[in-house]
Structures are given as C-alpha cells and as structure tokens.
Simulated scan of single mutants.
Amino acid sequence: MNMTNSNFSLILTAYGPPGPLNYGVFLVTLVLYLATVFSNLTLMLVILFDPSLHKPMYIFLFNLAIDGLIGSSVVCPVIMQYLLEDLKTMSLTSCLLQVFFINVYGSWVYAMLTVMAYDRYVCICKPLQYHSIMTPTKVRLLLGVVYIFPLCSFAVQVCLTSRLPMCKYTMNKLFCDNLAVVNLACIKPALDNVYGLLLFVMFAVLPLLLVVLSYIRILIVSTKASENAKTKALKICAPHLITFINFSSAIFFSIVFNRFNDYVPNEINVFISLHVFMSPPLLHPLIYGIRTQEIRKSITKILRRNVFALDFQPA
C-alpha cells in the first residue's frame, strides 16, 4: 500500500532489543568514537599551531581530519542512541539527511585523498616547480571543488529519492543509506539508478583511477632516481598510500555488504557498519602521526613546551 512521505517513519531492525550485546557494542562504539574525536582534534591542533606545517600537504591533511570527524559524528551518536532504545524509528526526513551526510563524507574523503595524491605527484615528479604549481590560490581552488561539487551532487540525489512514494518501512540497517531507502519505494525509476551510477563513477571510480595513475607516474620517476631519492619518495608516499588503501578497502566492503546484508548474520552487519565509519577516521590521524616525521617532531615540540616544561621561577 502506498504511504505518503510527510509523516512516514522507518524502523531499523538490525539492532535487536536492548541487552548485553547492545550494551557491549555501545561501550565499544563510545570508546572508539571518543578516540576518533581526540586523535583528529589533536592532529588538527598540531597543524594549526605549528607554522612549519602550513603547507599544502598538511592543509589537505587538516581537512581530511575534519572529514573524519564529520563522518563519525553523523553515524556514531545515532547508533549509540538506538542501541539503548526499545523502538528504533527514524523519520524519512532524518533518514535522508543522514544519507546525504554519509555520502558527502565518503566523497569528501576520497576526493581529499585524490588531491593529496596529486600533491605527492607534484612533489616527487616536479620538485623544482612544486611551489609554482601548488600555490595558495590553487590549494583553495582544489578544496573548493572537493567540498562544493559533492554537496551539490548528493543534494540532487536526496531530492530525487525524497520524491519516491514509499510502500515499506523496515530496513535491516544500523543507519540509512540511499539504496536501502530506494528499495522501500513502490517504484524503481530508472533516473535514480542512472544518477546513482553516475555518482559512483564520479566519486569512487574516477578518484581511484587518478590515484593509481599518480602512483604509476611516481613509480616510474622513482625507478630512475638514486637510492636516497627512492627512500625519500617512499617516506613521503607511505602514509598517504596506507591511508588510501585503508579507506578504499572499507568502502569496498561496505558496497559489497550493502548488496548482501540480508543474508549475513547480524553480528557481521554490526561490524561492517561500524568499520566504515570508525576505522578510517580513527586510523588516518594515527597513520600520519606515526609515519610522518614532521608531525612527530611537532607533537614532541608541543609536548615539551606546554606539557613537560616546568617553571621553577620564584614568585
């Protein structure tokens, strides 16, 4: 039976009733979320207060941390709330807003990692031209494209989905995604499918190809360089490459899982859903903090100056 969308509410069935399992997942989610917020804020403050890190690479990394905070904050508080509630209902409007920010988060991170790969390509393959290519104006332009284009693109997608008449109201999900909402509709319009495929190509396939091409070019240049240059290139690229592989694998498993989540145990449902929004935002600042020498030095300098320094001067 067709239902009007004005007062339409969805029921998320993946949680189960409150109990020991839900409380355990709540505690793990809370700890990981707090650790994610702390690690990203720490990285942002280190970059903000150290003038030596006010360079394109670290400006992009600062924005990557912002994206991580947005992604985890869109999903984790809602998951923790529903883990403790008996009835897991969400209005269609709230669900579509969550869909919008989830998709924007994923596209922002992938686009930012693509821009960072371009920055690494220029740094290694065109070192003498780096400062003339990666100018402040170009950095601002790249950031503008990274943020504005996905916002507009996914706003259109959410608008198209919101116009669909709904006939079902239950989803075996911890949170909303566009495909799950479309599957609740009475009709399956071709326009939504075509537009969704176009967005997938623009914000998943194209960034992947650009990053791969960047690293192929870096690899070609590195093979012709000296051993010291190869080692330096590896140190420069390793944090970004690890981060990109980590996020790409999370997105890949999420996409595959979304197609088959009705056929897997609920425990795997919970793990995969949390992994996409907890693992990358938590690991990315840790990877850069451990693997990037400049950030390690900045953290050490800040700790020595503000935490471990003692003032023994008499009053």
Rank of each mutant, 00 (worst) to 15 (best):
S279G: 05
V256N: 03
R259L: 12
V276W: 05
T243L: 06
H275Y: 12
F252P: 02
F308C: 09
I287Y: 11
F247G: 01
F247A: 01
V307M: 03
R259E: 12
F308L: 14
A309L: 08
T243I: 03
I302K: 04
F244V: 05
L241I: 13
R296K: 15
E294Y: 01
H275E: 13
I295N: 00
I251Q: 04
M278I: 13
F271T: 14
F253W: 09
Y263C: 07
P281F: 10
P281R: 07
H284I: 15
S298D: 06
N258V: 05
T292S: 14
T300G: 02
F252Q: 06
I302T: 07
L274G: 05
R296I: 09
F277E: 01
S298N: 07
N306H: 13
G289K: 07
V256Q: 07
R291M: 15
S273D: 06
L274S: 01
R304P: 02
I295A: 05
L286G: 02
F260G: 03
L274N: 04
I242H: 02
L282Y: 01
N261T: 08
H284N: 13
F271N: 08
Y263N: 11
S298V: 06
R259Y: 06
F253Q: 02
S254R: 05
N246P: 00
L303W: 00
K301M: 11
R305K: 14
